[in-house]
Simulated assay, not measured.
Amino acid sequence: MKIQIDESRCIAAGNCVMTGADIYDQRDEDGIVVVMDYAPEDPELQRQARAGAAICPAKVITITED
Rank of each mutant, 00 (worst) to 15 (best):
V34A: 15
Q46A: 07
Q48N: 03
I32F: 13
Q4L: 15
N15G: 08
V60F: 12
I55D: 07
R50K: 14
D25G: 15
D42G: 08
D37W: 09
I3V: 02
A51F: 06
A53E: 02
Q46F: 01
I61Y: 09
D22Y: 10
G31Q: 05
D37H: 09
M1G: 06
R50Q: 05
N15A: 13
V33R: 10
G31F: 00
V33C: 09
E41R: 07
A54M: 00
Q26D: 11
Y24N: 01
Q48E: 08
I23R: 00
E44R: 03
Y24H: 03
R27P: 15
C56K: 00
C56E: 02
K2T: 09
A13V: 13
D42V: 11
C16H: 03
C10H: 08
A49R: 01
G52W: 00
C16T: 00
D66I: 14
V60G: 05
P43K: 09
V17F: 12
K2Y: 05
M18Q: 15
D37G: 06
D6I: 05
K2H: 06
I23K: 00
D22T: 10
K2Q: 01
T62N: 12
T62L: 15
I63G: 03
T62K: 11
N15H: 07
V34N: 10
I63Q: 01
R50L: 12
G52F: 01
I23V: 05
E65Q: 12
I23C: 00
D66M: 09
D66K: 12
R27T: 13
A58G: 02
G20I: 02
E44V: 09
T64I: 03
E29V: 13
E44Y: 13
P40N: 06
V17Q: 13
K2G: 04
I61N: 07
I11D: 08
E44T: 14
A13M: 03
L45W: 10
R50W: 05
N15M: 11
I55K: 04
S8A: 15
V34I: 15
K2M: 01
Y24T: 05
V34K: 12
A54Y: 02
D22E: 15
G31M: 10
T62M: 12
P57M: 01
I11A: 07
V35W: 03
G52V: 00
M36N: 06
E65D: 13
Y24L: 06
A13P: 05
R9S: 13
A51V: 08
I11R: 04
I63V: 00
D22V: 13
A54T: 03
Q4Y: 15
D28F: 11
D42C: 00
C10L: 02
A12Y: 04
D6A: 04
Q48H: 04
A51M: 10
M18K: 13
V60E: 12
D66R: 11
C56Y: 11
A49W: 00
P57L: 02
M18P: 14
K59W: 12
N15T: 11
T19A: 12
I5Q: 04
P57D: 04
E7W: 13
S8F: 13
I11P: 03
I61T: 06
D30Y: 07
A39N: 14
C10D: 06
K2N: 10
M36H: 10
T62V: 12
G20A: 05
I5F: 04
K2D: 04
Y38H: 11
E65T: 10
A13G: 01
D30H: 08
